[in-house]
Simulated assay, not measured.
Amino acid sequence: MQKITTFLWFDGQAEEAMNHYVSIFKNSKVLSVTRWPKGHALEGQVLVASFELDGVTFQALNGGPQYKFTEAISLSIDCKTQGEVDHFWERLTEGGGQPGPCGWLKDKFGVSWQVVPEQLPRLLQDPDQAKAGRVMQAMMQMGKIEIDKLEAVAGG
């Protein structure tokens, strides 16, 4: 059992968001759905849902309009290949999501994500400060991270 679970507050889109995320990540599934009971104004709509994304548990709540997502918290995805970066970037920005700088994006529900190839931290932590600096400068100019460009600037 996972000790800490990310809990996401939505304004009526909890089920749509859950299903969207489960469709994007491998090894993902809906775990449980609790709906508002009969007689409630929101009867039949999702109250709370629990789901796994690549083995990590999340919960989604339809809590109403009083709280919105901000970039102050984001979900980071570690990617091994450019294909993975492209997949997550495309799927998470589809339908109204917005690309941001330096590998960050906001999905159509307002949740912020970082799509990070495993090469990026390795290159940024290189003992050669000039190389790390070139990589940082290149990354700062990117939206979606492009591994080949980072490797090229790292090489000089």
Rank of each mutant, 00 (worst) to 15 (best):
P99L: 08
V85E: 00
S23T: 05
G83W: 00
L53C: 11
I73Q: 12
S32K: 14
A130M: 11
Q59F: 15
A49G: 15
F58S: 12
V48Q: 12
Q82W: 01
F7P: 03
T34M: 13
G39Y: 03
T6V: 14
S112C: 10
I77S: 01
P127T: 13
L75Q: 11
W104Y: 10
R122M: 12
M139T: 04
M139G: 02
Q45T: 13
G83A: 02
S74D: 06
V33T: 15
N62I: 09
F88I: 05
E90P: 05
D126M: 07
L61H: 10
K108G: 04
T6R: 05
G44N: 07
F10E: 03
P99N: 10
G97S: 06
V33H: 10
K38T: 13
N27F: 01
M136L: 14
G64L: 11
F69K: 05
K131R: 13
E15Y: 10
N27L: 02
V22Q: 03
M140E: 08
Q137A: 15
G110R: 00
E84C: 05
S76Q: 10
A130N: 13
Q114G: 11
L61G: 03
R91M: 14
I77C: 00
K108A: 10
E16M: 07
P37S: 13
S76V: 08
C79L: 07
V115N: 00
N27P: 04
I4R: 04
E94H: 09
W89S: 06
R91A: 15
K38A: 13
